[in-house]
Design a protein around this nucleic acid. Sequence first.
DNA 1: TAATATAGCATAGCGATGCTATATTAATTC
DNA 2: GAATTAATATAGCATCGCTATGCTATATTA
Lengths: 201, 201
Amino acid sequence: MARTKDPAIRLRLIERAAQMLRAREPITLRSVVADTGLSTMAVYTYFGSMDGLWRAMRQEGFTRLAARLAAVAPSADPVRDLAALGAAYVSNALAHPDLYRVMFDSGFDLEDPAAADEGLLHFVRAVERAREAGRFPGGTDAPALATRTWIVGHGLASLTAAGPLPREALSAGPALLTAVFVDAGDDPVQCGRSVAEGWTL
Amino acid sequence: MARTKDPAIRLRLIERAAQMLRAREPITLRSVVADTGLSTMAVYTYFGSMDGLWRAMRQEGFTRLAARLAAVAPSADPVRDLAALGAAYVSNALAHPDLYRVMFDSGFDLEDPAAADEGLLHFVRAVERAREAGRFPGGTDAPALATRTWIVGHGLASLTAAGPLPREALSAGPALLTAVFVDAGDDPVQCGRSVAEGWTL
DNA sequence: TAATATAGCATAGCGATGCTATATTAATTC
DNA sequence: GAATTAATATAGCATCGCTATGCTATATTA
């Protein structure tokens, strides 16, 4: 047929763009391909448009987040794990604040929305394990409770990593998670211990 | 001296830009002044740069939000008022999702940051009234508790108005607020009533 | 009241942007 | 090894934000 696309080039462009984003350098059609030996057409071959490149970067952000959440090792205490997941979520946003901001820009259009759902799934599974362990006797279903945890994590991450709140505001994390989990039926004292144990930034 | 700036022109440009933002039309230097009888220089006279116009729009967003929160009439039940403030916050984001997104873009640089603080102050005062009413016997100080409420509100608003969550996710609002307020020491039953009463979208 | 100073305004143009049309190159298939 | 075809390189287009320049209108002053 003809010469084929090289996936490595695609990854190199995404990585380079992410690096420029971190360095707060302007990401333009010509600047991303500069010094790479590639021409501007590479962007259109691999991403269709400049918007496509941004979309791919968002995707990459969610993929990395999912990997970060997957690296949280489940323990015998599922509520501790939930707090650890929340901490990992916020920690990821703090480590890559600009990428985190881009992830939720432009109406959340991704190439593969399932990658974002996969991240939430880690929370859902932890909630289910907590329920099986009898920690959440309340009637709230697992996806709803996982979503509440996500809402808290996103609010905290968004306002501290890419917003007006100072880093000290991160101390609100354990308190908020404890409040949500106790509301779901967990014992206040035990919950406080579990959250404190899991929340490590 | 010379001819003077007309504040009305400034407002007209901001309003027009906000309208184009809502209509999802591209906001460019030339498009904002098109059909207004003004030249492109007007933007630089009144805002210094295109970035200045965006900054002014963010400011306008926070001003409208503050006005919206100020319109929440305090009642005899300060916890109800807190929920009402939260609902007003989310409701404002839902009514102007694009403006809300812009408000938290670009590193949160505003002309007058005090306008944003003023919005938070409504929450702080409501928390103080609740404390005086004996609803929050816990030791958490008012600003911290108000910030927690804001974090929850922003997480909910950000993910539903300008994010991936569907409108049904708004039902998490009362549950989250109740969890936070009960954690602060309020009676669960009374708190549930107050929040349900105040949370009107 | 008339001259002057000055701030706002309109115009034109610059460099840079995202994108596309066209020609060239290189890899695959027969 | 020729034909086919997709990826690449080049050049150019419309438009972007921005600024230099000259003009106009108003406020101050004599």
